[in-house]
């Protein structure tokens, strides 16, 4: 008498479905990383909940404490040169930076992006000629990212106001910073 023992086997359809899972994941990651255009948005609410726990703008000693009024929470810049470090994906083309600020009167205001291991930045001046003095305005600038230098995929961006001195009565307040990083796909 022959005894036939049936070996258990995974049905072909289920096998195909199981193999399709990693293929789908890898396909998705290749598509979003290399093929299609991507936009990453980082919103830094200065004076907000997260900024209270861990300030976005550093060094902390160069910033004031948080001021609250009815419509906004914000901080003042006390000393020149403060930094923010947004994450930048490899292959990103440019960052569109928008800031809601009370700009300093009669002083130029520069945004910098780090370009080397040493302390070295490219500076972009923001045009404040139409900004009403002492009032909140939204200012913005596009910064090219090809030549920039990132540490752990974070770019050091500097806010620089030459000749700024809070002791002389200069005032510079920041309510929020919105950074949109654009990363083109291979077909762009």
């Amino acid at each position: 008498m022959n005894i036939i023992v049936k070996k258990p086997r995974v049905p072909l359809l289920i096998k195909l479905i199981i193999i399709a899972i990693p293929l789908f994941i890898f396909g998705y990651l290749i598509t979003v990383n290399f093929i299609i255009d991507q936009e990453f948005n980082y919103f830094y609410d200065i004076g907000g909940e997260e900024d209270t726990a861990k300030p976005y703008l550093t060094p902390v000693e160069r910033m004031s404490e948080i001021y609250n009024n009815s419509s906004e929470n914000y901080r003042n810049v006390n000393y020149d040169l403060v930094y923010v470090n947004p994450p930048i994906q490899k292959g990103s083309e440019y960052a569109d930076i928008q800031m809601r600020v009370i700009p300093p009167i009669n002083l130029s205001f520069l945004l910098g992006a780090r370009i080397s291991q040493e302390w070295n930045y490219t500076w972009n001046e923001l045009n404040l000629s139409h900004a009403p003095s002492g009032q909140w305005v939204v200012v913005g600038k596009k910064i090219q990212l090809y030549e920039t230098y990132s540490i752990n995929d974070k770019l050091s961006m500097a806010i620089h106001i030459p000749k700024f001195s809070s002791a002389n009565g200069d005032k510079f307040s920041i309510d929020w910073i919105n950074i949109t990083v654009y990363k083109p796909g291979v077909f762009s």
Partner: peptide, 22 residues
């Protein structure tokens, strides 16, 4: 048991390798 046990084993192996590669 049987086919279901094999399917679970197969799924576990595939997902584990996928996770490690990721």
């Amino acid at each position: 048991k049987g086919n279901i046990a094999l399917t679970v084993n197969h799924l576990f192996q595939v997902l584990l390798v996928t996770y490690l590669v990721l």
